[in-house]
Design a protein around this nucleic acid. Structure first.
Lengths: 345, 345
DNA sequence: CTGTTAGCGCCTTCAT
DNA sequence: ATGAAGGCGCTAACAG
């Protein structure tokens, strides 16, 4: 058996045909006499030959490969979204490079470079720099340069000055639904916890919260609007701050489920029962929201639809089809047991 | 500006040099006069040229790409391990394809195929078929075929008849430490919950549990050894079964942290306090173990070391260096608040 | 239906 | 220090 890689030439030789014919059975792009076909297939089988897709890609100028840039694959929101997206991409014949940036812009740049060099056909971008409310000019430039050659779809983000296609969950209406729910449960004193100013998803949610409150004639207490981040620890932090206040809200809307979990942990530790004494709601509907006691009422981002839509738009762009510039995926309220009717006070 | 992709030819033309010289500045493999160098660099910059790594790979016969096959990226164990591994791979100049198989052997085959065709330099394989205690012959064959050309490293798994390099966490001793801990806390009636027979990690843990118990002169009650899976739901399931028993263990060792969480949920719901009335321990030290009340005592798989070691071995194999056939990464006991000294009974 | 040929973009001798 | 040429593995056009 020949050393090194087996190529269609080797197969061709052994089957007494030309490389072109081998290529034809490989691609199915032209008719081959069943006899020769069989002969070739046998040899392919015999050597367990697999065509080199790099060579193929070089020729076709497309690699059937998609790059994913996201900040933290160990965060359930991203991993679930990735999972759904990747499954759909695979159905469409694409394989996926994952760039996990740890929310570090240098890493984002590195991956962007690397994906370009690796000739990915398109890029899905979630989190990181596309979530900064104040877009950094250089970062925007960098993305724009890449976009001149490779389509990029932003998920739940945007950059000023960058005209990318966007697929996003309807966070505004999600928050609105939560506020409405809490108000229907007689809560008037509602706080907003978690997130970070300057990160667009936080700003979107916070604004939506403020609007929802004002629209319904409720006022906002600034002491009850605090955020230091997106994880459980930061939920614990803000809850602790809240406990030091003289006057406290009766319901807490959290920037995401992890924050809600942190908040519930601390409240519970301090003897405040959720939902009996304080109502808490989250956002995202991660796997845990269902399982963390008492079960967190939240808003689902409809991962399946969000991921599939993103991939669909990207693939359309890859194939130079028209695609809507911005697609908003609906969110849905998921009722569980972390909030409760406020009995008269 | 030229249509289509910019190549070193375009750069060469504009800089009045030969493509070879452009290539030289790109790779740094030969000296170029500083003057010409500068000139070329300017043109490269001007067009924001990035070399096509597919072409490069085709030539070099290596793609600087690693494939990852794992069953479920939304499971914190895998996502954390992946994250650590990928970060290290990137340091070494590798980009990573992620194949998320949903524990489906057909998907595993597809990815295996795809990774071969994409000419990955090596593959990290975690979970899925390499965790079946009874190796399926055909699956083993398939892997062996791939291994003839591409090095594969198994993480926490093995297949009979497949002579792959293995990097694994020391699950045996991890379990032993847990059993010892529980016994030191005066527990004699210990159950083992979760996991699935026929999955090697379960078998390893269960055997280690049995050994640890026997060594210390404790007997095992078969009714207390039940498992239906690896997630929270399955923890809930087995805990429910346990509650129906007349005689119940005082301590529960769970196959992993998610199972432990499910178990704690159900026990708590039934009014049994953890750790006051039942002690529970988990395995893996996922992010949640710390946060799920009361804080789960568990065993850490040392993700960083496990991931890095796996990548290191793989890269060594890629570079045709020697590598140990099996490397065992130590596990460490993480003490939290889910178990407690059993007061006299 | 099948073979021949050229070229995708790059790098690496071999000359100069 | 630089240029010319061939080839990595594959496929699409062009012949036949």
């Amino acid at each position: 058996m020949k050393k090194g890689n087996i190529t269609i030439y080797d197969i061709a030789k052994e089957a007494n045909v030309s490389p072109a014919t081998v290529s034809r059975v490989l691609t199915g792009n032209a008719k081959v006499r069943p006899q020769t076909m069989r002969k070739i297939m046998d040899v392919i089988e015999k050597y367990n030959f697999k065509p080199n897709s790099l060579a193929r890609s070089l020729l076709h100028k497309q690699s059937k490969t998609i790059g994913f840039i996201l900040p933290d694959i160990s965060h359930p929101f991203f991993s679930t979204l990735f999972q759904k997206s990747e499954a759909y991409a695979m159905e469409l014949g694409y394989t996926v490079f994952l760039g996990n940036t740890m929310n570090n812009s240098e890493n984002e740049s590195k991956y962007l470079q690397s994906l370009v060099e690796k000739q990915v056909d398109g890029i899905i971008y979630i989190g990181g720099r596309i979530n900064d409310t104040d877009t950094d000019k250089e970062y925007a430039e960098e993305i724009k340069k890449v976009m001149e050659r490779i389509p990029i779809v932003f998920v739940n983000g945007r950059m000023t000055g960058v005209d990318a296609h966007v697929v996003r969950a309807d966070e505004e209406s999600g928050i609105d639904k939560l506020v409405e729910l809490l108000i229907n449960l007689n809560h008037l004193k509602i706080g907003f916890l978690g997130g970070l100013d300057g990160i667009s998803s936080t700003d979107v949610k916070k604004n939506s919260f403020i609007n929802a409150m004002k629209t319904r004639g409720l006022s906002i207490n600034k002491d009850w609007v605090i955020g230091t981040g997106f994880n459980i620890e930061s939920g614990e932090e803000v809850a602790t701050q809240l406990l030091n206040l003289n006057e406290r809200p009766t319901a807490l809307l959290c920037a995401n489920d992890l924050v809600a979990i942190g908040v519930i942990k601390v409240l519970t530790k301090f003897g405040l029962k959720v939902p009996e004494e304080v109502s808490v709601v989250g956002f995202d509907d991660i796997y845990l929201a269902k399982h963390f006691p008492p079960g967190i009422t939240t808003v689902s981002q409809n991962y399946d639809q969000l991921g599939q839509t993103a991939i669909k738009v990207l693939v359309d762009l890859i194939n130079e089809k028209e695609a809507e510039k911005e697609i908003v995926v609906p969110t849905s309220l998921i009722l569980r047991d972390s909030c409760k009717l406020l009995s008269d006070s």
